[in-house]
Design a protein around this nucleic acid. Structure first.
Lengths: 172, 172
DNA sequence: AGCTAATAGTTAGCATCCTAACCAATAAAT
DNA sequence: ATTTATTGGTTAGGATGCTAACTATTAGCT
């Protein structure tokens, strides 16, 4: 699961040059856009490599993350396939596939809900919890490392700028 | 081709709370990380939707972009499958698949290279060029829109911060 | 020259995620 | 109360990108 992204981004002057031919090309917008794609892709690569070293995938990890018991949790926690799909912005069919694998590996359990016989109730098994508690420190360590070139201030700035893009993107 | 990403990111206090349980969790690093993933994903969704409206995919578009004749081009241009794979940071097998489709659609031509009979030489057909020149204005317009919430300064700052992440990621 | 190693491209088979169609169960409407 | 619409979950089949194995050609060594 990879995205095609340019390895070497075009130099800014090339963008300016191209903007003469294409008036809709805004060099700074293009530059920001390409950097976003590349950084996202690089980070994905690192994370995927990390996950595959632990016989898990990004998708399965995220599902277990969502199912994980939170301490002092006022944060709502999804417990049905439909809720998981919603939290993870992914189709229900995808959740079915991920849960199949997680159940096969003994990390998750699906139980019917007597109150509404359409629904399934999903939880982590003890093995699933143990797995996560082994993996999470390494996982968080890796994220901390990845952001290691940025100061606290820069991280906050980055988050703010990226939010502006996400907001725009969701209503384009 | 989608990535699983949280729709609602956890609030900062939740991250701080969680960091008490997991000392390796750095709240600001985590926050920046998740924003990066989400923004990248949102932007990908918008672009993919745009592409599919023109019966093309991200991958095929990028290949055609790489093959496109550049005016005043001192920028090097790939012309063999191996070079395309390198420029796009993708496997050669993937390029084979993309070229198969592009060739079927009449956008690209593969020709043997008499000088080195292992190599193929790839170029856009006139139809491929025409297609790109129709699509590109819309494409650039969309990118400009997506970055529309950011000022010139913010775009530059964003690019700078993202570069720091890409740099770090490529040697983690 | 002739054998070995490296390189170009393709093929085969896998994983993830998608949409569309489907069945079962519940809710809503008359 | 019965019909109709909606919701939850799964299944089937497709697309993209991957790795590993394969063939053909070229380069390097002795």
């Amino acid at each position: 699961m990879q995205r095609l992204v340019l390895k070497e981004l075009p130099r800014y002057e090339c963008l300016v040059e191209a903007s003469k031919q294409f008036p809709d090309l805004n060099p700074s917008a293009c530059e920001a856009f390409m950097h976003l794609r590349r950084a996202g892709d690089e980070v994905s690569r690192v994370m995927d490599a990390h996950f595959s070293g632990h016989d898990i995938t990004h998708g399965r990890f995220l599902i277990m993350m969502l199912l994980l018991e939170k301490k002092g949790a006022d944060c709502p926690r999804p417990s049905t396939p439909a809720e998981l799909a919603d939290f993870a912005s992914v189709s229900r069919a995808t959740i079915t596939g991920l849960l199949d694998t997680l159940e096969r590996d003994g990390f998750v359990l699906r139980e019917p809900n007597p109150a509404d016989r359409r629904q399934m109730s999903v939880h982590l098994t003890p093995a699933g919890q143990a797995f996560m508690h082994t993996l999470l420190p390494v996982h968080f360590r890796l994220i901390t490392d990845l952001m290691g070139n940025l100061s606290e201030n820069e991280r906050t700035t980055l988050a703010k700028l990226l939010t502006k893009i996400s907001t725009k993107a969701s209503d384009v």
